[in-house]
Design a binder for these strands. Structure first.
Length: 539
DNA sequence: CGTACGATGATAAGAAGT
DNA sequence: ACTTCTTATCATCGTACG
Protein backbone atom coordinates (compact mmCIF):
# COMPACT_ATOMS: atom_id res chain seq x y z
CA UNK A 1 0.00 0.00 0.00
CA UNK A 2 2.88 2.35 0.75
CA UNK A 3 4.23 1.63 -2.70
CA UNK A 4 0.83 2.41 -4.18
CA UNK A 5 0.67 5.89 -2.72
CA UNK A 6 4.34 6.64 -3.26
CA UNK A 7 3.76 5.61 -6.84
CA UNK A 8 1.09 8.28 -7.03
CA UNK A 9 3.75 10.84 -6.29
CA UNK A 10 3.38 11.38 -2.56
CA UNK A 11 6.30 11.62 -0.22
CA UNK A 12 6.89 8.42 1.70
CA UNK A 13 6.95 10.31 4.99
CA UNK A 14 3.43 11.60 4.40
CA UNK A 15 2.17 8.17 3.41
CA UNK A 16 3.62 6.54 6.50
CA UNK A 17 2.17 9.24 8.70
CA UNK A 18 -1.27 8.89 7.18
CA UNK A 19 -1.29 5.10 7.52
CA UNK A 20 -0.04 5.42 11.04
CA UNK A 21 -2.87 7.75 11.95
CA UNK A 22 -5.63 6.05 10.02
CA UNK A 23 -4.77 2.39 10.27
CA UNK A 24 -4.39 0.20 7.20
CA UNK A 25 -8.06 -0.33 6.58
CA UNK A 26 -9.57 2.23 4.24
CA UNK A 27 -7.44 3.40 1.32
CA UNK A 28 -9.80 6.29 0.63
CA UNK A 29 -9.52 7.83 4.05
CA UNK A 30 -5.79 7.31 3.92
CA UNK A 31 -5.69 9.17 0.64
CA UNK A 32 -7.76 11.94 2.15
CA UNK A 33 -5.34 12.23 5.03
CA UNK A 34 -2.36 12.31 2.71
CA UNK A 35 -3.99 15.00 0.66
CA UNK A 36 -4.67 17.00 3.80
CA UNK A 37 -1.08 16.67 4.90
CA UNK A 38 0.39 17.51 1.55
CA UNK A 39 -1.91 20.51 1.24
CA UNK A 40 -0.62 21.68 4.59
CA UNK A 41 2.96 21.04 3.56
CA UNK A 42 2.53 23.14 0.49
CA UNK A 43 1.00 25.99 2.44
CA UNK A 44 3.34 28.72 3.58
CA UNK A 45 2.10 30.55 6.69
CA UNK A 46 0.43 33.38 4.87
CA UNK A 47 -1.64 30.93 2.96
CA UNK A 48 -2.76 29.31 6.15
CA UNK A 49 -4.17 32.56 7.37
CA UNK A 50 -5.67 33.24 3.98
CA UNK A 51 -7.55 30.03 3.60
CA UNK A 52 -8.10 28.62 7.02
CA UNK A 53 -10.08 31.06 8.98
CA UNK A 54 -9.93 30.01 12.60
CA UNK A 55 -12.90 32.19 13.46
CA UNK A 56 -15.25 30.35 11.20
CA UNK A 57 -16.50 26.94 12.05
CA UNK A 58 -16.62 24.25 9.43
CA UNK A 59 -14.27 22.24 7.37
CA UNK A 60 -11.33 24.55 7.62
CA UNK A 61 -11.22 23.85 11.29
CA UNK A 62 -10.24 20.31 10.51
CA UNK A 63 -7.06 21.47 8.88
CA UNK A 64 -6.15 23.43 11.96
CA UNK A 65 -7.01 20.58 14.28
CA UNK A 66 -4.85 18.32 12.20
CA UNK A 67 -2.16 20.90 12.51
CA UNK A 68 -2.27 20.91 16.28
CA UNK A 69 -2.42 17.14 16.37
CA UNK A 70 0.77 16.73 14.49
CA UNK A 71 2.91 15.65 17.36
CA UNK A 72 5.75 14.43 15.23
CA UNK A 73 6.56 18.00 14.26
CA UNK A 74 7.52 20.22 17.12
CA UNK A 75 6.07 23.69 16.95
CA UNK A 76 9.40 25.23 16.18
CA UNK A 77 10.08 22.72 13.48
CA UNK A 78 6.73 23.36 11.92
CA UNK A 79 7.22 27.07 12.04
CA UNK A 80 10.56 26.75 10.36
CA UNK A 81 9.18 24.55 7.64
CA UNK A 82 6.37 26.92 6.94
CA UNK A 83 8.45 30.04 7.04
CA UNK A 84 9.98 29.09 3.77
CA UNK A 85 13.52 30.25 4.53
CA UNK A 86 15.13 26.94 5.34
CA UNK A 87 14.98 25.46 1.92
CA UNK A 88 11.33 24.55 1.89
CA UNK A 89 9.60 25.73 -1.25
CA UNK A 90 6.18 25.17 -2.74
CA UNK A 91 5.80 23.36 -6.03
CA UNK A 92 4.84 26.56 -7.75
CA UNK A 93 7.87 28.28 -6.34
CA UNK A 94 10.10 25.53 -7.64
CA UNK A 95 8.44 25.82 -11.00
CA UNK A 96 9.17 29.52 -11.16
CA UNK A 97 12.77 28.86 -10.23
CA UNK A 98 13.19 26.37 -13.01
CA UNK A 99 11.61 28.81 -15.41
CA UNK A 100 14.04 31.44 -14.27
CA UNK A 101 16.92 29.04 -14.84
CA UNK A 102 15.84 28.58 -18.42
CA UNK A 103 15.53 32.32 -18.80
CA UNK A 104 11.90 32.29 -19.85
CA UNK A 105 10.28 34.40 -17.17
CA UNK A 106 7.58 36.95 -17.88
CA UNK A 107 7.48 40.28 -16.07
CA UNK A 108 4.67 38.98 -13.90
CA UNK A 109 6.45 35.75 -13.07
CA UNK A 110 9.61 37.66 -12.28
CA UNK A 111 7.75 39.69 -9.67
CA UNK A 112 6.10 36.56 -8.30
CA UNK A 113 9.44 34.85 -7.92
CA UNK A 114 10.96 37.87 -6.20
CA UNK A 115 8.13 37.93 -3.71
CA UNK A 116 8.26 34.18 -3.19
CA UNK A 117 11.99 34.34 -2.55
CA UNK A 118 11.29 36.87 0.16
CA UNK A 119 8.99 34.36 1.82
CA UNK A 120 5.60 35.70 0.81
CA UNK A 121 2.85 33.28 -0.09
CA UNK A 122 2.48 32.96 -3.83
CA UNK A 123 -1.25 33.14 -3.44
CA UNK A 124 -1.03 36.53 -1.75
CA UNK A 125 1.46 37.73 -4.32
CA UNK A 126 -0.85 36.65 -7.12
CA UNK A 127 -3.82 38.39 -5.54
CA UNK A 128 -1.88 41.61 -5.24
CA UNK A 129 -0.54 41.34 -8.80
CA UNK A 130 -4.01 40.62 -10.04
CA UNK A 131 -5.16 44.01 -8.84
CA UNK A 132 -2.05 46.04 -9.50
CA UNK A 133 -0.27 44.35 -12.40
CA UNK A 134 1.88 47.42 -12.96
CA UNK A 135 2.98 47.90 -9.37
CA UNK A 136 6.69 47.58 -8.62
CA UNK A 137 7.77 44.89 -6.18
CA UNK A 138 8.25 47.36 -3.33
CA UNK A 139 4.65 48.48 -3.54
CA UNK A 140 3.46 44.91 -3.75
CA UNK A 141 5.23 44.12 -0.51
CA UNK A 142 3.37 46.94 1.19
CA UNK A 143 0.07 45.80 -0.20
CA UNK A 144 0.59 42.21 0.89
CA UNK A 145 1.81 43.27 4.31
CA UNK A 146 -1.18 45.50 4.90
CA UNK A 147 -3.54 42.79 3.79
CA UNK A 148 -1.93 40.31 6.14
CA UNK A 149 -2.23 42.64 9.09
CA UNK A 150 -5.83 43.30 8.33
CA UNK A 151 -6.48 39.59 8.07
CA UNK A 152 -4.71 38.69 11.26
CA UNK A 153 -6.66 41.28 13.18
CA UNK A 154 -9.80 39.96 11.61
CA UNK A 155 -8.94 36.37 12.27
CA UNK A 156 -7.88 36.50 15.84
CA UNK A 157 -10.52 38.78 17.19
CA UNK A 158 -12.39 36.85 19.86
CA UNK A 159 -16.15 36.40 19.71
CA UNK A 160 -18.31 39.36 20.60
CA UNK A 161 -18.81 38.43 24.23
CA UNK A 162 -15.07 38.17 24.70
CA UNK A 163 -14.25 41.28 22.77
CA UNK A 164 -12.30 44.01 24.49
CA UNK A 165 -14.51 46.80 25.76
CA UNK A 166 -13.31 49.39 23.31
CA UNK A 167 -14.63 47.37 20.44
CA UNK A 168 -17.98 46.67 22.05
CA UNK A 169 -18.40 50.27 23.09
CA UNK A 170 -18.92 51.17 19.48
CA UNK A 171 -22.52 50.14 20.03
CA UNK A 172 -22.26 47.20 17.69
CA UNK A 173 -24.79 44.57 18.61
CA UNK A 174 -24.17 42.61 15.47
CA UNK A 175 -22.99 39.06 15.85
CA UNK A 176 -21.34 39.41 12.50
CA UNK A 177 -17.62 39.52 12.53
CA UNK A 178 -16.30 42.84 11.54
CA UNK A 179 -15.10 42.75 7.99
CA UNK A 180 -11.79 44.52 7.77
CA UNK A 181 -11.03 46.27 4.56
CA UNK A 182 -8.23 48.55 3.58
CA UNK A 183 -9.42 51.86 2.33
CA UNK A 184 -10.46 51.32 -1.25
CA UNK A 185 -7.70 48.77 -1.78
CA UNK A 186 -9.56 45.64 -0.87
CA UNK A 187 -7.82 42.31 -0.95
CA UNK A 188 -10.40 39.60 -0.70
CA UNK A 189 -9.76 36.97 1.89
CA UNK A 190 -12.24 34.66 0.27
CA UNK A 191 -13.50 34.16 -3.23
CA UNK A 192 -16.13 36.72 -4.16
CA UNK A 193 -18.96 36.33 -6.61
CA UNK A 194 -18.93 38.62 -9.63
CA UNK A 195 -21.83 40.98 -10.23
CA UNK A 196 -23.22 40.56 -12.84
CA UNK A 197 -22.40 36.86 -12.67
CA UNK A 198 -20.94 36.47 -16.14
CA UNK A 199 -17.63 34.69 -15.46
CA UNK A 200 -15.12 35.31 -18.23
CA UNK A 201 -17.94 36.48 -20.47
CA UNK A 202 -21.30 35.51 -21.93
CA UNK A 203 -22.57 36.01 -25.48
CA UNK A 204 -25.27 38.50 -24.56
CA UNK A 205 -23.15 41.01 -22.63
CA UNK A 206 -20.02 43.07 -22.92
CA UNK A 207 -17.10 40.98 -21.66
CA UNK A 208 -15.68 41.93 -18.26
CA UNK A 209 -12.44 43.90 -17.97
CA UNK A 210 -10.05 41.02 -17.68
CA UNK A 211 -10.36 38.44 -20.44
CA UNK A 212 -6.98 36.77 -20.20
CA UNK A 213 -5.66 34.29 -17.70
CA UNK A 214 -2.57 32.21 -17.32
CA UNK A 215 -2.76 28.76 -15.81
CA UNK A 216 -0.07 27.12 -13.71
CA UNK A 217 1.89 24.58 -15.73
CA UNK A 218 0.66 21.54 -13.83
CA UNK A 219 -2.93 22.59 -14.51
CA UNK A 220 -2.67 22.87 -18.27
CA UNK A 221 -4.36 20.44 -20.60
CA UNK A 222 -4.53 17.99 -22.08
CA UNK A 223 -6.33 16.46 -20.40
CA UNK A 224 -8.81 19.28 -20.16
CA UNK A 225 -11.11 19.25 -17.20
CA UNK A 226 -14.35 20.94 -16.30
CA UNK A 227 -15.74 20.99 -12.80
CA UNK A 228 -19.07 22.42 -11.71
CA UNK A 229 -20.99 23.11 -8.50
CA UNK A 230 -23.44 25.58 -6.96
CA UNK A 231 -22.12 29.13 -6.61
CA UNK A 232 -23.72 29.93 -3.26
CA UNK A 233 -22.01 27.50 -0.93
CA UNK A 234 -21.20 27.90 2.74
CA UNK A 235 -18.14 30.06 3.26
CA UNK A 236 -14.76 28.66 2.36
CA UNK A 237 -16.02 25.81 0.19
CA UNK A 238 -14.95 27.33 -3.12
CA UNK A 239 -11.60 28.28 -1.61
CA UNK A 240 -11.03 24.62 -0.78
CA UNK A 241 -12.22 23.38 -4.15
CA UNK A 242 -10.05 25.89 -5.95
CA UNK A 243 -7.05 24.96 -3.83
CA UNK A 244 -7.39 21.33 -4.85
CA UNK A 245 -7.88 22.16 -8.51
CA UNK A 246 -4.51 23.86 -9.02
CA UNK A 247 -5.60 27.19 -7.52
CA UNK A 248 -7.57 27.99 -10.65
CA UNK A 249 -10.02 30.82 -10.12
CA UNK A 250 -13.62 29.62 -10.44
CA UNK A 251 -15.74 31.05 -13.23
CA UNK A 252 -19.10 31.99 -11.72
CA UNK A 253 -21.85 32.17 -14.30
CA UNK A 254 -25.61 32.59 -14.03
CA UNK A 255 -27.47 30.68 -16.72
CA UNK A 256 -30.01 33.48 -16.94
CA UNK A 257 -27.60 34.93 -19.51
CA UNK A 258 -28.12 31.82 -21.64
CA UNK A 259 -31.75 30.86 -21.15
CA UNK A 260 -35.02 31.80 -19.48
CA UNK A 261 -34.05 30.35 -16.10
CA UNK A 262 -31.46 31.39 -13.55
CA UNK A 263 -28.82 28.93 -12.42
CA UNK A 264 -25.94 30.37 -10.45
CA UNK A 265 -23.01 28.02 -10.72
CA UNK A 266 -19.26 28.01 -10.32
CA UNK A 267 -17.06 26.29 -12.90
CA UNK A 268 -13.39 25.47 -12.56
CA UNK A 269 -11.73 24.40 -15.79
CA UNK A 270 -8.50 24.66 -17.73
CA UNK A 271 -10.12 25.36 -21.10
CA UNK A 272 -9.13 28.32 -23.24
CA UNK A 273 -11.54 31.21 -22.81
CA UNK A 274 -11.06 32.84 -26.17
CA UNK A 275 -13.24 32.23 -29.23
CA UNK A 276 -16.15 30.63 -27.48
CA UNK A 277 -19.41 30.40 -29.38
CA UNK A 278 -22.97 29.69 -28.27
CA UNK A 279 -25.16 26.72 -29.16
CA UNK A 280 -27.65 27.19 -31.93
CA UNK A 281 -30.56 27.39 -32.13
CA UNK A 282 -30.60 29.86 -29.27
CA UNK A 283 -33.04 28.87 -26.52
CA UNK A 284 -35.92 31.13 -25.49
CA UNK A 285 -34.52 34.00 -23.49
CA UNK A 286 -37.45 35.15 -21.38
CA UNK A 287 -40.41 33.54 -19.67
CA UNK A 288 -42.67 35.18 -22.23
CA UNK A 289 -40.78 33.61 -25.12
CA UNK A 290 -40.54 30.25 -23.42
CA UNK A 291 -44.22 30.10 -22.48
CA UNK A 292 -46.16 32.19 -25.00
CA UNK A 293 -49.50 30.79 -23.84
CA UNK A 294 -48.96 32.09 -20.35
CA UNK A 295 -48.92 35.68 -21.60
CA UNK A 296 -52.69 35.80 -21.61
CA UNK A 297 -52.86 35.07 -17.87
CA UNK A 298 -49.75 36.86 -16.69
CA UNK A 299 -50.84 39.69 -14.35
CA UNK A 300 -49.27 43.12 -14.82
CA UNK A 301 -48.00 43.10 -11.23
CA UNK A 302 -45.81 40.02 -11.78
CA UNK A 303 -42.58 41.56 -13.11
CA UNK A 304 -40.60 38.34 -13.58
CA UNK A 305 -39.01 37.69 -16.97
CA UNK A 306 -36.69 34.83 -15.89
CA UNK A 307 -37.49 31.72 -13.89
CA UNK A 308 -35.52 31.09 -10.72
CA UNK A 309 -33.19 28.16 -10.30
CA UNK A 310 -34.81 24.86 -11.17
CA UNK A 311 -34.64 22.57 -8.17
CA UNK A 312 -35.39 18.94 -7.53
CA UNK A 313 -38.83 19.31 -5.99
CA UNK A 314 -41.95 21.18 -7.09
CA UNK A 315 -44.74 23.05 -5.36
CA UNK A 316 -47.63 21.14 -3.85
CA UNK A 317 -51.14 21.27 -5.26
CA UNK A 318 -52.31 22.67 -1.92
CA UNK A 319 -50.14 25.73 -2.40
CA UNK A 320 -51.43 26.55 -5.88
CA UNK A 321 -54.93 26.06 -4.54
CA UNK A 322 -54.31 28.50 -1.68
CA UNK A 323 -53.04 31.05 -4.17
CA UNK A 324 -56.10 30.62 -6.39
CA UNK A 325 -58.58 31.10 -3.56
CA UNK A 326 -56.67 34.08 -2.20
CA UNK A 327 -56.85 35.75 -5.61
CA UNK A 328 -60.49 34.88 -6.20
CA UNK A 329 -61.53 36.32 -2.84
CA UNK A 330 -60.12 39.67 -3.88
CA UNK A 331 -62.46 39.81 -6.87
CA UNK A 332 -61.90 41.57 -10.19
CA UNK A 333 -58.98 43.89 -10.86
CA UNK A 334 -55.61 43.91 -9.17
CA UNK A 335 -55.58 42.26 -5.74
CA UNK A 336 -54.51 44.20 -2.61
CA UNK A 337 -50.81 44.76 -2.16
CA UNK A 338 -50.52 42.25 0.68
CA UNK A 339 -51.97 39.50 -1.52
CA UNK A 340 -49.69 40.48 -4.36
CA UNK A 341 -46.69 40.24 -2.09
CA UNK A 342 -47.72 36.82 -0.83
CA UNK A 343 -48.38 35.47 -4.31
CA UNK A 344 -45.13 36.85 -5.69
CA UNK A 345 -43.17 35.42 -2.79
CA UNK A 346 -44.60 31.96 -3.40
CA UNK A 347 -44.21 32.23 -7.18
CA UNK A 348 -40.52 33.08 -6.81
CA UNK A 349 -39.91 30.47 -4.17
CA UNK A 350 -41.60 27.65 -6.07
CA UNK A 351 -40.97 28.80 -9.63
CA UNK A 352 -44.65 29.00 -10.61
CA UNK A 353 -46.06 30.11 -13.96
CA UNK A 354 -49.53 31.42 -14.83
CA UNK A 355 -51.68 28.86 -16.58
CA UNK A 356 -55.17 30.34 -16.23
CA UNK A 357 -57.18 33.07 -14.55
CA UNK A 358 -55.88 33.22 -10.97
CA UNK A 359 -54.17 29.90 -11.60
CA UNK A 360 -50.47 29.23 -11.11
CA UNK A 361 -48.72 25.90 -11.58
CA UNK A 362 -45.26 24.36 -11.32
CA UNK A 363 -43.35 23.65 -14.54
CA UNK A 364 -44.00 20.39 -16.34
CA UNK A 365 -41.01 18.04 -16.77
CA UNK A 366 -40.83 18.64 -20.52
CA UNK A 367 -40.79 22.39 -19.90
CA UNK A 368 -37.86 21.92 -17.56
CA UNK A 369 -36.09 19.85 -20.20
CA UNK A 370 -36.52 22.69 -22.66
CA UNK A 371 -35.28 25.36 -20.24
CA UNK A 372 -32.20 23.32 -19.40
CA UNK A 373 -31.39 22.69 -23.06
CA UNK A 374 -32.24 19.00 -23.28
CA UNK A 375 -34.25 17.42 -26.08
CA UNK A 376 -37.93 17.06 -25.29
CA UNK A 377 -38.76 13.81 -23.50
CA UNK A 378 -35.08 13.23 -22.75
CA UNK A 379 -36.00 11.90 -19.31
CA UNK A 380 -39.39 10.51 -20.21
CA UNK A 381 -40.38 6.85 -20.13
CA UNK A 382 -38.15 3.86 -19.49
CA UNK A 383 -39.70 3.32 -16.11
CA UNK A 384 -38.77 6.63 -14.50
CA UNK A 385 -41.37 8.28 -12.32
CA UNK A 386 -42.44 11.90 -12.61
CA UNK A 387 -40.89 12.78 -9.28
CA UNK A 388 -37.60 11.21 -10.31
CA UNK A 389 -37.65 13.13 -13.58
CA UNK A 390 -37.84 16.37 -11.61
CA UNK A 391 -35.05 15.15 -9.38
CA UNK A 392 -32.74 14.17 -12.23
CA UNK A 393 -33.42 17.37 -14.14
CA UNK A 394 -32.97 19.54 -11.07
CA UNK A 395 -29.55 18.01 -10.55
CA UNK A 396 -28.37 18.62 -14.08
CA UNK A 397 -26.32 21.12 -16.10
CA UNK A 398 -27.84 23.95 -18.06
CA UNK A 399 -26.72 22.67 -21.45
CA UNK A 400 -26.34 26.00 -23.27
CA UNK A 401 -24.12 27.40 -20.52
CA UNK A 402 -21.85 24.37 -20.39
CA UNK A 403 -21.77 24.12 -24.19
CA UNK A 404 -20.58 27.72 -24.46
CA UNK A 405 -17.60 26.87 -22.28
CA UNK A 406 -16.87 23.58 -24.05
CA UNK A 407 -17.24 25.06 -27.53
CA UNK A 408 -13.51 25.83 -27.71
CA UNK A 409 -12.86 22.08 -27.96
CA UNK A 410 -14.42 21.87 -31.41
CA UNK A 411 -11.45 23.28 -33.28
CA UNK A 412 -8.96 21.61 -30.99
CA UNK A 413 -10.33 18.10 -31.53
CA UNK A 414 -11.69 17.88 -35.09
CA UNK A 415 -11.57 14.08 -34.95
CA UNK A 416 -13.50 13.82 -31.70
CA UNK A 417 -12.82 13.41 -28.01
CA UNK A 418 -12.53 10.72 -25.38
CA UNK A 419 -14.57 11.87 -22.42
CA UNK A 420 -14.52 10.79 -18.80
CA UNK A 421 -17.77 11.97 -17.30
CA UNK A 422 -18.06 11.82 -13.51
CA UNK A 423 -21.41 12.25 -11.79
CA UNK A 424 -22.92 12.19 -15.29
CA UNK A 425 -26.53 12.42 -14.22
CA UNK A 426 -28.69 12.61 -17.30
CA UNK A 427 -25.70 13.41 -19.48
CA UNK A 428 -25.66 17.19 -19.63
CA UNK A 429 -22.05 17.32 -20.78
CA UNK A 430 -22.57 14.61 -23.40
CA UNK A 431 -25.62 16.39 -24.80
CA UNK A 432 -23.72 19.68 -24.87
CA UNK A 433 -20.79 18.18 -26.79
CA UNK A 434 -23.10 16.40 -29.19
CA UNK A 435 -25.12 19.53 -29.89
CA UNK A 436 -21.88 21.42 -30.50
CA UNK A 437 -21.04 18.93 -33.22
CA UNK A 438 -18.04 17.56 -31.35
CA UNK A 439 -17.65 13.90 -32.15
CA UNK A 440 -17.73 11.60 -29.15
CA UNK A 441 -15.18 8.86 -29.62
CA UNK A 442 -15.54 7.04 -26.31
CA UNK A 443 -17.48 8.15 -23.27
CA UNK A 444 -16.78 6.63 -19.87
CA UNK A 445 -19.61 7.64 -17.62
CA UNK A 446 -19.82 7.16 -13.88
CA UNK A 447 -23.26 7.64 -12.39
CA UNK A 448 -24.82 6.15 -9.30
CA UNK A 449 -28.46 6.18 -10.35
CA UNK A 450 -29.55 3.38 -12.65
CA UNK A 451 -32.44 5.45 -13.96
CA UNK A 452 -30.00 8.15 -15.05
CA UNK A 453 -27.65 5.63 -16.66
CA UNK A 454 -30.61 4.27 -18.58
CA UNK A 455 -31.51 7.77 -19.79
CA UNK A 456 -27.99 8.41 -21.07
CA UNK A 457 -27.81 4.95 -22.66
CA UNK A 458 -31.10 5.47 -24.42
CA UNK A 459 -30.07 8.94 -25.64
CA UNK A 460 -26.77 7.50 -26.84
CA UNK A 461 -28.50 4.85 -28.93
CA UNK A 462 -31.04 7.28 -30.37
CA UNK A 463 -28.41 9.74 -31.55
CA UNK A 464 -26.52 7.23 -33.68
CA UNK A 465 -23.23 7.58 -31.89
CA UNK A 466 -20.34 5.75 -33.55
CA UNK A 467 -18.21 5.46 -30.43
CA UNK A 468 -18.89 3.40 -27.35
CA UNK A 469 -20.44 4.31 -24.04
CA UNK A 470 -18.98 2.58 -21.01
CA UNK A 471 -20.69 3.15 -17.70
CA UNK A 472 -19.87 2.55 -14.05
CA UNK A 473 -21.90 3.19 -10.94
CA UNK A 474 -19.44 4.20 -8.26
CA UNK A 475 -16.79 6.90 -8.28
CA UNK A 476 -15.22 5.76 -5.03
CA UNK A 477 -14.30 2.38 -6.42
CA UNK A 478 -12.95 3.83 -9.65
CA UNK A 479 -9.33 3.17 -8.83
CA UNK A 480 -5.93 3.41 -10.41
CA UNK A 481 -6.06 -0.06 -11.91
CA UNK A 482 -9.30 0.74 -13.67
CA UNK A 483 -8.02 4.04 -15.02
CA UNK A 484 -4.89 2.35 -16.29
CA UNK A 485 -6.87 -0.44 -17.91
CA UNK A 486 -9.31 1.91 -19.63
CA UNK A 487 -6.61 4.22 -20.93
CA UNK A 488 -4.82 1.15 -22.23
CA UNK A 489 -7.95 0.19 -24.14
CA UNK A 490 -9.35 3.43 -25.52
CA UNK A 491 -6.36 5.76 -25.27
CA UNK A 492 -5.98 9.00 -23.35
CA UNK A 493 -8.88 11.03 -22.10
CA UNK A 494 -9.17 14.46 -23.69
CA UNK A 495 -11.78 15.80 -21.29
CA UNK A 496 -12.70 15.03 -17.69
CA UNK A 497 -16.02 16.60 -16.87
CA UNK A 498 -18.30 16.51 -13.88
CA UNK A 499 -20.24 18.33 -11.19
CA UNK A 500 -19.98 16.72 -7.79
CA UNK A 501 -22.98 16.46 -5.45
CA UNK A 502 -24.25 19.76 -4.15
CA UNK A 503 -26.83 18.62 -1.65
CA UNK A 504 -24.66 19.35 1.38
CA UNK A 505 -23.83 22.79 -0.04
CA UNK A 506 -27.15 23.96 -1.46
CA UNK A 507 -29.12 26.64 0.33
CA UNK A 508 -32.42 24.85 0.11
CA UNK A 509 -31.23 21.95 2.22
CA UNK A 510 -32.70 22.32 5.69
CA UNK A 511 -31.44 19.09 7.09
CA UNK A 512 -27.83 18.42 6.14
CA UNK A 513 -26.16 21.51 4.74
CA UNK A 514 -22.88 20.28 6.12
CA UNK A 515 -20.48 21.81 3.63
CA UNK A 516 -17.83 20.08 1.57
CA UNK A 517 -17.26 17.42 4.21
CA UNK A 518 -20.90 16.32 4.01
CA UNK A 519 -21.82 12.76 3.14
CA UNK A 520 -22.37 13.31 -0.57
CA UNK A 521 -20.57 16.56 -1.30
CA UNK A 522 -17.28 15.13 -0.06
CA UNK A 523 -17.28 13.04 -3.24
CA UNK A 524 -15.63 16.11 -4.71
CA UNK A 525 -12.38 14.65 -3.46
CA UNK A 526 -12.97 11.67 -5.72
CA UNK A 527 -13.26 14.00 -8.68
CA UNK A 528 -9.87 15.37 -7.79
CA UNK A 529 -8.45 11.91 -7.14
CA UNK A 530 -9.64 10.51 -10.45
CA UNK A 531 -8.51 13.58 -12.38
CA UNK A 532 -5.09 13.07 -10.84
CA UNK A 533 -5.09 9.41 -11.88
CA UNK A 534 -6.01 10.34 -15.45
CA UNK A 535 -3.01 12.65 -15.57
CA UNK A 536 -0.76 10.08 -13.93
CA UNK A 537 -1.53 7.29 -16.37
CA UNK A 538 -1.44 9.53 -19.42
CA UNK A 539 0.50 7.86 -22.21
C1' DC B 1 -46.36 10.93 -4.60
C1' DG B 2 -47.73 14.73 -1.49
C1' DT B 3 -46.60 17.62 2.15
C1' DA B 4 -44.31 19.06 5.95
C1' DC B 5 -39.84 21.37 7.33
C1' DG B 6 -35.46 27.16 8.05
C1' DA B 7 -30.80 28.82 7.49
C1' DT B 8 -27.07 30.99 5.07
C1' DG B 9 -25.10 34.37 2.50
C1' DA B 10 -25.29 38.04 -1.13
C1' DT B 11 -26.91 42.43 -2.20
C1' DA B 12 -29.12 46.82 -1.90
C1' DA B 13 -31.04 50.46 0.42
C1' DG B 14 -31.38 53.18 4.38
C1' DA B 15 -29.53 55.21 8.75
C1' DA B 16 -26.04 57.09 11.33
C1' DG B 17 -21.61 58.84 11.90
C1' DT B 18 -17.41 61.60 10.22
C1' DA C 1 -19.78 64.16 0.45
C1' DC C 2 -18.17 60.06 2.01
C1' DT C 3 -17.77 55.95 5.03
C1' DT C 4 -19.59 52.56 8.10
C1' DC C 5 -23.12 50.12 10.19
C1' DT C 6 -27.98 48.27 10.25
C1' DT C 7 -31.93 46.40 8.22
C1' DA C 8 -34.68 44.36 4.66
C1' DT C 9 -35.18 41.47 0.69
C1' DC C 10 -34.24 37.61 -1.96
C1' DA C 11 -32.57 33.12 -3.83
C1' DT C 12 -31.46 28.47 -2.98
C1' DC C 13 -28.85 21.31 -8.35
C1' DG C 14 -33.06 19.31 -0.55
C1' DT C 15 -34.61 15.79 3.05
C1' DA C 16 -37.84 13.15 5.93
C1' DC C 17 -41.97 10.94 6.67
C1' DG C 18 -46.33 8.84 5.82
Amino acid sequence: MIGHFVGMGFAEKLVLKAIDENGEGDPDSILNLILTFSTLEESPPQQLSTNSDPCSSGNNENFLNDLSDMDSWSEDELEDRLKGNDGYKSEKHKMLLSLAASGSLSERERKLLDLADMGYALEDAELALERWPEAPVDDLIEIIGAAQMAREEDCYLPEDDLKPKHILSGGSKSKKRKHFEMKKNVIEETIRLPNPMIGFGVPSMQPPERVHRSLPLEARGPPYFYYENVALTPKGVWDTISRFLYDIEPEFVDSKFFSACARKRGYIHNLPIENRFPLVPLPPFTIQQAFPLSRRWWPSWDPRDKMNCIQTAIASAKLTERIRTALERSGEGDPPEAIQRYVMEQCRKWNLVWVGRNKVAPLEPDEVEMLLGFPKNHTRGGGISRTDRYKSLGNSFQVDTVAYHLSVLKDMFPHGVNVLSLFSGIGGAEVALHRLGIKLKNVVSIEKSKANRDIVRSWWEQTNQTGSLIDFDDVTSFDAARVEQIIGTIGNFDLVVGGSPCNNLAGSNRVSRDGLEGKESSLFYDYFRILDLVKLYRQ
